[in-house]
Simulated scan of single mutants.
Amino acid sequence: MGTFKKLSLSLIASTVFLTGCQQFTTPLGSAPTQMVEANNQFNLQGKIGVRTPQQSGSAFFRWVQEQQEFDIELSGMLGIGKTQISGKPGQVTLNSANTGLVTANTPEELLEQATGWKTPITNLVSWIQARPATSTAQIQKDENNRPTQFIENDWTVDLSYNEQATLPNKLILKQSLESGQENRITMIIQNR
């Protein structure tokens, strides 16, 4: 795999970081599209995998979120080494031995600059907490009223849970492409 493909996959995974009786619900009312959530505080460890029609790979991650500021550390990806991503409103930085320091205003801009891939990375903060990111999301729930699927922003997000847990331990994000193929991100949360 070429250096550019390795770098692209590294950046894709860097900035991102499933049943029973189910029903679809759609939020009612004319609330704003973006939902504002007050409690975005967590510390996660796990593994992330990325698969596109052109490439695939995986890495271990550690993600600390303090409201709107975050710090993500990736390791073990395609021999690229450790990658550090930090962000606060208006500034996101990625730093690794191979890329040096890369900056952007949002995680989405960082990913698009590096790879041309448009994804709602910011929505992942809500999805890993079993919340829709917008008021327009289609939501599928299980018999315990836990969300098992969100469809929003051209992505389908499937959530899986350990036994009676209220927060998911696995997320699969899928984006259908015009070619009939898909982009897929699998996130396994081992520790919260």
Rank of each mutant, 00 (worst) to 15 (best):
W127R: 01
I151M: 05
L94D: 09
I172D: 05
I189G: 04
Q181C: 00
L101S: 12
V157F: 00
Q22K: 09
I139T: 00
I80R: 09
Q45E: 14
L78M: 15
N191R: 14
S135I: 06
M77T: 15
V157Q: 03
L111E: 08
N162Y: 11
D154A: 01
K174W: 00
P132S: 04
Q34L: 11
T26A: 13
V102M: 13
A133L: 03
Q34H: 12
T19Y: 08
N153K: 04
Q129N: 04
L78C: 13
W155G: 00
T99I: 09
N162M: 05
W117Q: 00
T115L: 05
R51V: 15
V50P: 02
T52Y: 09
Q91W: 10
Y161A: 01
G76I: 02
T26E: 14
L173S: 00
L11G: 05
P53V: 11
E163N: 15
Q67F: 09
G90E: 08
A13Q: 12
A165I: 09
T3P: 12
T134H: 00
R51Y: 06
G90Q: 07
E37D: 13
E66M: 05
T148F: 08
Q138C: 07
N105Q: 14
M1C: 01
T33D: 07
C21D: 11
N40K: 13
L11A: 10
L44G: 04
